[in-house]
Design a protein around this nucleic acid. Sequence first.
DNA 1: TATTGTTATACTCTATAACTATA
DNA 2: TATAGTTATAGAGTATAACAATA
Lengths: 154, 154
Amino acid sequence: MPSGTEEPEQSTGGLPTELAYRLGYLLKHAQQLVHERTARALEPVGISGRELAVLTLLTAGTPLSQQEAARLLSIDRTTMVAMVDELEGKELVARHPDPIDRRRNIVAVTDAGQAALRDATERLDKVERDFLARLDERDGHRLRKMLSLLVFGD
Amino acid sequence: MPSGTEEPEQSTGGLPTELAYRLGYLLKHAQQLVHERTARALEPVGISGRELAVLTLLTAGTPLSQQEAARLLSIDRTTMVAMVDELEGKELVARHPDPIDRRRNIVAVTDAGQAALRDATERLDKVERDFLARLDERDGHRLRKMLSLLVFGD
DNA sequence: TATTGTTATACTCTATAACTATA
DNA sequence: TATAGTTATAGAGTATAACAATA
């Protein structure tokens, strides 16, 4: 056998496999990759991934107050204030005081917001397709299924 | 069919599926779960997940300087200073000036550090096993394989 | 009294710039 | 001059506390 230091030097960039193949490491870096690509893909739309999530949530069902939206997205309500400020500044949403309970702000998605949502959703779909491109379609579905099982338990 | 608002109300906690099954959402929350469970499991050892990564890296192969370790883990070198400070405070590592180049600190894992590493690694193994418990063994391997393909491209 | 939205504050994590000692 | 380590600082992101309006 060859003497001297063996350096497999894989695509892990020199990181030893006992670190690189840790589930935590893999999940963190997979998440990071998707996050970065999403941010880049949404740049032309002028919104962040989290703002897209808010727009999606506000369009999905019943009108929601800031706090309801925050709770569903596990975002702090004080953070939601800043996010709605930002989205309102871009005129993608509008605050409407709830006539029944005037403490609450119903956050409505404007027409421009819905257009941005459609555009951004298409771009996000493409990010996911590209990210999963190395897997065949069956494995892509498998991955999503396994992750949702692990995260939601169903 | 029943009239009125339909509320499937799955285990997504009220979050609409078009959000909950997004790859970014799934990866972020899977990562978060593993991260939290890791932190809790390592509490008795007195180190964080990142500190475990540093100990693993420093024990894996050739002795490394702070900056080499930082680069491999994609950590800023200023952050590595604080991490080595912390680990040195716990007497799990020791800084040894490199006799050949006295600018560099070779960071050596102490006996106590190696004991902590063994303990922590077992605990982390258990976290991963528990996290993957809902998958059969074959799917567990599949998931890890798919993620490493997506992250490293191999 | 409790709750929604808000503001101010603090705390963590990370990135940038500048300093020192060595090369 | 360039580099390793260090320190100080600033910037995101997020969490906590307190306040105003409303219930």
